[in-house]
Computed example of a mutant assay.
Amino acid sequence: MAFNVLKSGMLALVQDLGRHGYQHLGVTTGGPMDELAFRWANALLDNPDNSAQIEITFGMFTLEAQAPTSIALTGANLGATLNDRPILPWQTHAIQKGDILQFKQPSHGLRAYLAVKGGFDVAPILGSVATVMRESLGGQTGKGHKLQKGDVLPYTATSKHDQKIVPRIAIPNYDSKDIAVVMGYQFDTFSGLDRARFFGSEFTVTPQSDRMGYRMSGQAINGNKKGIISEGIAYGSVQIPNDGQPIILLRDRQTIGGYPKIGCVTSFSGGLLSQKQPGDTIGFQCVSVDQAERERHLQLARIAQWR
């Protein structure tokens, strides 16, 4: 009653909604890079919101089912096939014993989410199964390892399957370049020219981007402060280091930092950003806290209503 990993791919991680309540000890939250896609995958299967899933980055990942179940795929289109037959994301699929589920390279987006009916049976560490590799915490082994060939992912077998599809209106547009940013309390330390450059220019995702943070390349933003006393780091914080190139801190971010922050990417836009590949371009869009909260409430209410 498990999936056997036949091919590990570039990066496949066990994730739930994250490890909360330990940042004061230096332990980051982890969790899914694209929270909206993660939540929809569990909703499709009527799983609890926090049920463990697999986050698959860039594909090249292959599993073999050892028992029947029902799965949901959301997030990026990684060219998934079931027994060599193409299947689409943002819907459920029936799985039989011996089925081969394969993910190829991205055709749209970067990260896909694989949920199984009832969730994967993985032991939590500090209340969560979220895998944070740099902290050697969570995941299938409990030590922060990415999934490897030969790993076994247990689940509760079921022959019941309900065909469900996410409404088109709820599926994010991963081609969008607009990344919403709420102004931070250090916003006023940046000149009018730097603010105009930040919100009026396009930036390119660099190859140095990962789950910890996305590094951007574009017109340099030069704040009046070159450093600050280290302080807590919120999800989505947009740090401006000495070279003026923004760094957006995401799920596996450090818990404290000392660079000035021009603002904070919203949770929804952070998910959009996490679907960008190196070389993709984005633009920052200023929104208010009220706008950001309304967007999040809308997305969560849409899932709750659909359930």
Rank of each mutant, 00 (worst) to 15 (best):
R19C: 15
H108G: 02
S107L: 15
P172V: 13
G21Q: 15
Y174V: 09
K143F: 11
A2W: 10
I233W: 08
G144N: 02
T266D: 13
C286W: 09
G119L: 03
R85F: 04
A41G: 13
H93Y: 09
H93F: 09
T281C: 05
V152M: 00
G26H: 09
H24P: 03
R211Q: 04
F203Q: 07
P207R: 07
Q239A: 12
A2M: 04
I256Y: 05
L44H: 02
A94L: 11
S209V: 11
A170T: 03
D121L: 12
G244D: 08
I221S: 00
L153E: 10
G213Q: 05
G263N: 12
T255Q: 05
L300W: 11
T204E: 14
L137S: 07
Q148S: 10
N77W: 06
S267N: 10
G139V: 03
S201P: 06
A304K: 15
R253F: 06
I100S: 05
L193D: 14
Q53M: 08
D121A: 13
G258K: 00
G75H: 07
I229G: 06
G127Q: 06
A170K: 06
T92P: 12
R296C: 00
N77S: 09
R211D: 09
T141G: 11
A72E: 06
S8T: 07
D280I: 14
A123N: 09
I165E: 00
E231I: 07
A304P: 10
I179V: 12
G75N: 09
R197L: 13
L13K: 01
P68N: 15
A2D: 06
A72K: 03
H145V: 02
I95N: 04
Q53G: 07
G98D: 07
G244K: 13
T57K: 01
F190G: 02
D84Q: 15
G139T: 07
T69P: 00
L11E: 06
D194C: 03
P68R: 15
I169K: 15
T266E: 14
P241Y: 02
R85A: 11
G192N: 08
I248C: 07
M33K: 03
A220H: 12
F3K: 03
Q105V: 12
P124K: 15
Y259Q: 05
N42H: 03
Y259R: 07
T156R: 07
G142M: 06
Q208H: 09
I54W: 00
G227M: 08
V152G: 02
G192L: 10
V289Q: 05
G30M: 14
T158N: 07
Y214F: 15
A130N: 12
I71K: 10
L17V: 09
Y214M: 15
Q305H: 10
V287M: 10
C286Y: 00
L17F: 04
N4E: 01
V116A: 13
P207C: 02
K164S: 01
E35P: 02
F61E: 02
Q186I: 02
G213H: 12
T156P: 00
L249M: 13
T29Q: 10
L250P: 03
F38V: 02
V14E: 01
G283M: 06
V116K: 01
R39G: 02
T206R: 01
G118Q: 08
A292C: 04
N222P: 05
